[in-house]
Design a protein around this nucleic acid. Structure first.
Lengths: 315, 315
DNA sequence: CTGTTAGCGCGTTCAA
DNA sequence: TTGAACGCGCTAACAG
């Protein structure tokens, strides 16, 4: 591109040596207040900013991280990404985006590419089928979201808590026949944990459990909600917003009224389309922030990988 | 990080000089077939990949582009981004994501940051209020999406065509009282052009024009759709999927049946929630691919900025 | 055809 | 407290 100035230019312009400029740039000690001020003055007078590539070459870190989402149009992941971007920018990291489309193979390809590019770290939105072995040598520079993996840092939602909160609210509202629409147990967090929490609550409160676990999609909610409706059913808990969206569509079409829906989610779309649904916020927004912060701490060696659980919020 | 090998190592291991390795790396001519093969063998035997930062420093290009979306959760922009990512990866570009949230000031900040980072190019999703002057010196390395700006490359939708197609289909279906729900004219493309196309069609076919231009949001569609419904109205055209979503919600709640909805959009969410709506596909997916390709061509100096219009597809 | 040499912009010694 | 010299991994200019 055009002639960007270098520390050499700044040095010349402020009448000092290159290394002094370098020291000022990195806030190193050993520079007199006077020279520091003078150099800084010259620097922002000319809008100087050091070359990333040159620093990267010396320092081994190019200050780039990757965010691997499952799908760009995932409502929940969007909320998380929205909060993590500002954190990365603030710390000077460039976040590059990748999409896995729920394919372990794509994740593997992406990680390979990232490894070759010598990237600093990765935030990976977990999903079923992701083997821990393919995450290879990323232990120290990867944060997994929405799922935990042994040896890796992770930010998870309180799956059991979310369901318990929903169930309790429905129970307190007088509901005694609460059905459940969820995700297969092959999905440990959204599937197994939430379903188990449902079953447990039913057992503890002597409620009949009526559940189906069709999957993650809207269409699956739409097609399978009928399976969990009995003549006694007065409420329905959905494991995700997306399922609830599908279920609602069916209920509307069938003109089935008077059924209280509840879901884990709290996404803006849901709040607009169906404000009447009882929701809990699993903390998507918070999870993004936390994941970004955790990753940065690990990159800087200020933290070991650790598991973070986001508390549920009423909404 | 760990000891990655360098061209020096490869040179030593294959018994040649550094520059020969460099030549092989860049597919330059002037290397005998035998040495080339030998070097290449050593290279992928050791899984060698050159340091990005070092190349960047020499070559002035770090092969990084930015994608500035208005909102991460925009349905249409998601479709475009999904198709542009693979294009960038294929060409070795790392796409970093930023969100403008419809704020010109944020765009300015982001562009400033990108300028300082010496990025190769930008894909910018346009919106109302974006002044051409703030795009400063990006003429040659920016592609604007969904909006055109003088002197800049752009990929736009065929706003007029999209509306005409919808209107024609409704007209052919026998509808003679077609209302319109759109966006204010301050938004030139989605607002003005689409509205004008509606008005023009009405005039040419002697139809009464009944329109409101509340804005882009679902809520605005929901609140204002009543304004355009007359006792004669049999069909409603919405400028965007999002507006149609809001309008449908109102219609469902009011139990207003027998109104044919139509919208410009064709997003997956829409197709699921309201398959009965007539839609045209403005080519969101295609626009992403095209924008990415155009940007890369400009970066490589193989193309001047030019305006691309994506043709409408029936759906 | 190939190896040698000289930087790119920066951080890091090491003397002064 | 400061500056000069060196090298990071790579490409480009110049010799062989």
């Amino acid at each position: 591109m055009q002639n960007r100035l270098t520390i050499k230019d700044i040095a010349r312009l402020s009448g000092v040596g290159k290394s002094t400029v370098s020291r000022v740039l990195n806030n190193e000690s050993g520079v007199s207040e006077r020279t520091r001020e003078r150099v800084e003055a010259v620097m922002n007078q000319h809008g100087f900013s050091p070359s990333r590539s040159a620093r990267a070459m010396r320092g081994q870190s190019d200050k780039v991280v990757a965010i691997i989402v499952t799908r760009l149009d995932s409502l929940s992941e969007n909320l998380a990404v929205q909060t993590m971007l500002p954190v990365f920018y603030e710390q000077g990291y460039d976040p590059i985006m990748m999409e896995s489309k729920f394919s372990p193979q794509m994740v593997e390809e992406h990680l390979g590419m990232l490894k070759r590019r010598n990237i600093d770290g990765v935030v990976l939105f977990g999903f079923t089928g992701l083997g821990e072995q393919m995450l290879g040598s990323w232990q120290s520079s990867l944060v997994m979201l929405a799922r935990d993996a042994r040896g890796f840092a992770s930010v998870c939602y309180d799956d059991e808590g979310a369901i318990r909160v929903l169930m309790q609210r429905l129970y307190d509202g007088g509901h005694r026949h609460i059905s459940y629409l969820g995700v297969p147990h092959s999905d440990v967090t959204t599937g197994q944990r939430r379903h188990n929490a449902y079953l447990e609550f039913c057992q503890q409160n002597a409620l009949p459990a009526v559940a189906a676990l069709p999957g993650l999609g809207m269409k699956q909610g739409y097609e399978k909600v009928a399976d969990v409706l009995t003549p006694q059913t007065t409420a329905l808990v959905c494991a995700t917003d997306t399922l609830a969206l599908g279920a609602s569509k069916y209920l509307q079409e069938q003109r089935i009224d008077g059924l209280q829906l509840a879901s884990v989610g709290n996404t803006p779309l849901m709040k607009f389309l169906h404000p009447e649904i009882v929701t809990v916020d699993p903390g998507y927004a918070d999870s993004g922030r936390q994941a970004a912060m955790q990753l940065i701490e690990q990159i800087n060696g200020r933290s070991e990988p650790r598991q973070i659980v986001i508390p549920v919020t009423l909404s």
